[in-house]
């Protein structure tokens, strides 16, 4: 489903100053991968390479059948719709309600029929437990609720892959657990999830696989439990 083939990434003009160096790994469908590492280790860059927000300097990334070295410009949005993205700072549209935020994402793919949009939004907001707050604006919600709304937005296309960049980074432990519970439910439903985080304890407790990055290199790639195993 996701394959990195000897990927190097550098933001510098001078080559050799690698943010990611010789990354070679495959993520199978249904895995729940926690990517650990200090700030600057390359976690976010790894996620950005999956959505092709960044392109590899060397090597190739293949996601859901799209290869970074062959993909056409017009195909990039299709690839991105197969990857729901959740950000640390939620990035909801401030002047739209929660249901409008989620609906906007669906309309972007050309689904404009009101009944279809309403039903899809209701389904997603029920799944993240926010249906009752659908008419609230982001600033009227707590951090955890905003993050759940952001997950709802990421799920509206029913993507097979979900990428979460520090999804609990701005949340206290309890609300962080609530958000993780939503991610676990998605994992149980078969979604492939990659979570970039500093939180080693949660990784140890929840992940099926733990990947540790240090200065752009994979220093540990640990399969903690076979996927499909129930996590409590």
């Amino acid at each position: 489903m996701i394959a990195f083939e000897h990927v190097h990434k550098s933001y510098a003009v001078r080559r050799g100053d690698w943010v990611l160096e010789d990354l070679h790994l495959t993520v199978e469908p249904g895995e729940l991968v926690f990517i650990l590492g200090h700030s600057g280790a390359g976690k976010s860059t790894l996620l950005k390479l999956i959505t092709l927000e960044e392109r590899p300097t060397r090597g190739t990334v293949e996601v859901a059948g799209f290869r970074s070295d062959r993909i056409r410009r017009g195909e990039v949005p299709q690839l991105r719709r197969r990857c729901g993205v959740v950000f640390q700072d939620f990035r909801l549209i401030r002047d739209k309600t929660i249901s409008e935020n989620v609906a906007y994402c669906l309309r972007m793919t050309g689904t404009l029929e009101k009944g279809v949009v309403r039903r899809a939004v209701a389904r997603v907001l029920h799944s993240v437990g926010l249906y009752g707050l659908r008419d609230r604006f982001p600033h009227e919600l707590s951090g955890g609720e905003q993050q759940r709304a952001a997950i709802g937005r990421a799920l509206i296309h029913q993507p097979p892959i979900l990428l979460a960049d520090e999804p609990t980074g701005n949340l206290d432990t309890r609300t962080g657990d609530e958000v993780m519970e939503v991610l676990l439910r998605l994992h149980r439903a078969g979604t492939t999830i990659l979570v970039a985080t500093h939180d080693e304890q949660r990784a140890q407790r929840l992940a099926t696989r733990r990947l540790t990055l240090e200065q752009g290199r994979v220093v540990e790639d640990l399969f903690l439990r076979p996927h499909g195993t129930e996590i409590y």
């Binding site: 690839l79 990421a154 296309h157």
Partner: peptide
């Protein structure tokens, strides 16, 4: 600007 960046990452086409 920020919203446009997010929209792009979650799959909005340039036309949209």
């Amino acid at each position: 600007e920020e919203q446009l960046g997010v929209m792009k990452v979650i799959g909005a086409t340039d036309a949209f």
